[in-house]
Structures are given as structure tokens and as C-alpha cells.
Design a protein around this nucleic acid. Structure first.
Length: 318
RNA sequence: GGUGCCAUAGCUCAGUUGGUAGAGCACAGGACUGAAAAUCCUGGUGUCCCUGGUUCAAUUCCUGGUGGCACCA
């Protein structure tokens, strides 16, 4: 135990600022139990939690995004929960910058901070950065989007080949979002999109420990199904009704909202919508697991292993 | 009870002029640089209901069952 060292050497007190700072990432698929585990860890390490969830960050949604309960939020200080309005869309780069600023502030009083959530891209943006890109005129994007809808992807791909041959070779040309992104930046700036990308990972002034939670698939799906039922009982349909005026926003493509919008349109029954929410949540969980499995960067635990997780953190964060 | 139709993947169904089969969804895996709970790619997982018959060969044709649906009594 290294903790005793700190206390047994009073003549050379180590202040917080001497210690190496550590960010402990706690990731995992939706409904696996990250929130509860994170709170236990935060209580043990007497620290705070930065949420790494691209949807809990929005203010107007709570039931469908499964934000921590008021009781949970009262136990441990959480950051980046319900801080931005839906009309002010968030993105990974902004998240990176704001979290880094928050970390700098929190490290003045803590040696270890928890980053808890399931948004892989947001986590990686904090851990090794995401390139800064020039902002694009929304008008340009919608023009390109219209062209995509009317003429398909081929003309856009052809244009990309001319404007940015490097991206043409690298980008997934079947994925319209990737093509549109590369194209809109290239058009907007007059410089190829690829010139804005560096493949370098940014160095961070803190240590990063990555932990991911997983459980048996069947158990996970069971938890997902039950949570969807709980959301419906908690009034998800009413929450969605309130958000109808904002349904065009990207953030409203979230699982749980888009299915209920379809139901409100009369397109599908409520039962069908709820069934679709369960199915799409399962799919989402699988996709998250794919992200976290990548490159073996995570140390995996099951959500009940709090004691083992604490020991592992202590032995690696010294 | 009679007549007709149906029975193929976990589900809904297509198909095989007789040579053991394929779509969507589900499920599984992967990608991911300012929409990331988004978007995109890959993979069929099977006593073709059972039993006899015809045939070199039957999931396919025929007989008889069983189950379901519809109509008539």
C-alpha cells in the first residue's frame, strides 16, 4: 500500500501538485452499470466525475438519456451533465477543450479524476485529442446534403476526388457523412480536408488509466429491456412530446426519442416503438463494445468488481 | 364433420421446371478525426412439419398423418 507513505513522511509533505495526476476512464456499454460503479469509485477516492456521454450533456433530456438520478448526483459532484441546450449542438472537439479546462481546475484539489461514460469518440478526444477543424457555413452543408438526397453519393465522391485526392483514398466512400465532412471543409477553406488532419496523438500532462465494464450478453440485454420499461414508466413519452418542436435537431436522433416521434406521427404503435427502442439500444450497446475493444486499450471488469477495480487503480496510479 | 389453402432460419416470408436453399428483420463481428445514442461495411445461423411411395436423386411430385388458417355445414 503506497498510501501509508504519504502519511508516514510528514517532514516532506507531498502536496497535491507534486503528485502525478491521473484520469481514470470508466467506460462500457449502455446500462452495464457505469453510473453506480463510478459513484462508488468517486466516493472511495474522494473525487469528482466528468461525464463522457454525448447525450447526457444536453439540458432538456433526462429520462431517455438516463442521466444519473438526483440522489446519485447529490452523492458525488458530476460535470458535463445537462449543461448545454439542445439548440447548441455539441461535438467532440468542443468536449475535448472544455474537459481539459475542467481537468486543469480540478487537478488543483484532486490527484485522480474519473471520466465516466459510453461515448468512445468523446473519451478518445480527451485522452489523445482530436484535430481542430475550421467551422463550416451551415448553408454549405445543407446544400451538399440536398445534393446527396437528390443525386446520391456519386457526384459528391467525384468532387472529393478532385478537391482532396488524399481523403478520397482514405475516407469510407460509402458513408455519406464522411464524404460530406471532407467535402464541406475542402470547399469552405479551399484547402483539402486532409491537410487539417494530423495523425499525431496529443500528449497529456496526466496519466490515463482505462477501465471498461462488461457483463454476459444475456444479462446486459435483460438490463436494457428493463431500463426501457422503467423509462416508459418514468414518463419518457411525455418528455418526447415536449421535444416535438426540436425534433429536427441532430441530438434528437437519439434512441428512445426518434422511435417515439414515429409513434406520435401515427407511423407505428406504442408497443412497436417500445420494442424498437429495446432493439436499437441493444444495437447501440454492441457498437459501444466494438469501440472499446479496439486495440486492447481497456482493462475489463464486471460491474460488481468494485474492490478489484479499486485495487487495480491503486496499484497503477501510484 | 366437409372443402380449400398453408407448413422452409429466432421472426415475417421468397424459392427450388426434382440435383439438400435465400431476402428483410433479429443476432454476431468490424470501421470510425467537429452529427458519434450519428453514419457506414461484413457475416446465414436450417432434420425445408412427420410418415410411406415414385425416382439414380424428394424440401420440391404422389399417399396418409399432424398442426394452423379460411369458407361451408
Amino acid at each position: 500500500m503506497t498510501w501509508t507513505l504519504t502519511f508516514s513522511a510528514p517532514e516532506t509533505p507531498r502536496t497535491s501538485s507534486d503528485m502525478e495526476k491521473t484520469v481514470v476512464v470508466l467506460a462500457g456499454p449502455t446500462a452495464v452499470g457505469k453510473t453506480a460503479c463510478g459513484i462508488e469509485l468517486a466516493a472511495h477516492f474522494k473525487t469528482e466525475i466528468i461525464s463522457a456521454d454525448s447525450r447526457q450533456i444536453y439540458r432538456e433530456t433526462s429520462i431517455g438519456t438516463a442521466v444519473p438520478s438526483p440522489h446519485e448526483l447529490a452523492q458525488v459532484k458530476h460535470h458535463f451533465i445537462q449543461v448545454a441546450p439542445l439548440t447548441d449542438p455539441y461535438h467532440a472537439s468542443r468536449y475535448e477543450q472544455e474537459v481539459l479546462a475542467t481537468l486543469e481546475r480540478l487537478f488543483k484539489s484532486h490527484d485522480l479524476i474519473l471520466l465516466v461514460g459510453g461515448s468512445g469518440l468523446y473519451i478518445d478526444a480527451v485522452c489523445h485529442g482530436i484535430d481542430e477543424l475550421p467551422s463550416v457555413d451551415p448553408q454549405l452543408r445543407s446544400t451538399l446534403l440536398d445534393q446527396f438526397k437528390n443525386e446520391g453519393l456519386d457526384p459528391l465522391v467525384a468532387r472529393l476526388k478532385v478537391l482532396d485526392p488524399v481523403s478520397y483514398d482514405r475516407v469510407d466512400l460509402k458513408n455519406h457523412m464522411r464524404v460530406l465532412k471532407a467535402l464541406e471543409v475542402s470547399i469552405q477553406t479551399g484547402k483539402p480536408y486532409s491537410t487539417f488532419l494530423s495523425s499525431k496523438r496529443k500528449e497529456r500532462p496526466f496519466r490515463i488509466l482505462r477501465i471498461a465494464l462488461d457483463i454476459e450478453r444475456e444479462v446486459l440485454y435483460d438490463r436494457i429491456n428493463k431500463r426501457v420499461d422503467q423509462m416508459m414508466e418514468a414518463g419518457l413519452l411525455d418528455e418526447v412530446k415536449e421535444l416535438v418542436p426540436l425534433r429536427g435537431l441532430t441530438a434528437m436522433k437519439t434512441v428512445g426519442y426518434r422511435e417515439l416521434f414515429r409513434h406520435l406521427d401515427g407511423e407505428i404503435s406504442l408497443d412497436e416503438a417500445v420494442d424498437l427502442i429495446r432493439r436499437n439500444t441493444r444495437k447501440f450497446a454492441r457498437k459501444q463494445l466494438t469501440w472499446f475493444r479496439k486495440e486492447n486499450r481497456y482493462r475489463w471488469f464486471s460491474p460488481g468488481q468494485t474492490g478489484e477495480i479499486i485495487s487495480w487503480i491503486e496499484s497503477h496510479a501510484q
